[in-house]
């Protein structure tokens, strides 16, 4: 199984961001777009078409799934569909995080660091 999931790596940045946004709690489409925009300081803004294209891809790959549970009633808006991370999705996100850590730890990545430090 793990080898099978590894085939999905490296994840596209936006796929990874979306999986990360679902780690702590379930979320609906617009909420995801907002969380991602916030997490990237507005760098990544997902318009509806693009967002659901990504969602569709992740659902097709079995990394996320529409949620059957609902949040607390008064926070909820019954029209909305929520998504959750599947076990496979959580695993892939973890693998990707691990992979990125490896990238960051590489010699070349470390060599770049001084470029951004204030001189």
């Amino acid at each position: 199984m793990p080898t099978d999931l590894r085939r999905l790596l490296p994840l596209r940045p936006v796929d990874f961001l979306l999986l990360l946004a679902l780690v702590e709690h379930e979320q609906h489409g617009y909420g995801l777009a907002r969380d991602i925009a916030e997490a990237t300081d507005g760098l990544v803004r997902l318009e509806p078409g693009n967002l659901y294209r990504v969602i569709k891809r992740l659902v097709d790959d079995g990394l996320i799934a529409p949620s059957t549970r609902r949040p607390i009633a008064e926070l909820d808006d019954e029209r909305r569909r929520y998504y959750r991370l599947t076990a496979a999705g959580a695993r892939v996100a973890a693998l990707e995080a691990e992979r990125l850590r490896g990238v960051l730890a590489s010699r070349s990545a470390r060599a770049l660091r001084p470029l951004l430090e204030p001189t």
């Binding site: 609906h28 489409g29 617009y30 777009a33 509806p48 078409g49 967002l51 659901y52 569709k56 029209r79």
Partner: peptide, 20 residues
């Protein structure tokens, strides 16, 4: 959008658009 996509996500997209 293709029919299938529309069926799966059309309403959600509209919800998103409305909120946004």
């Amino acid at each position: 959008f293709p029919r299938e996509f529309r069926r799966d996500f059309g309403n959600d997209m509209l919800e998103y658009f409305r909120d946004r």
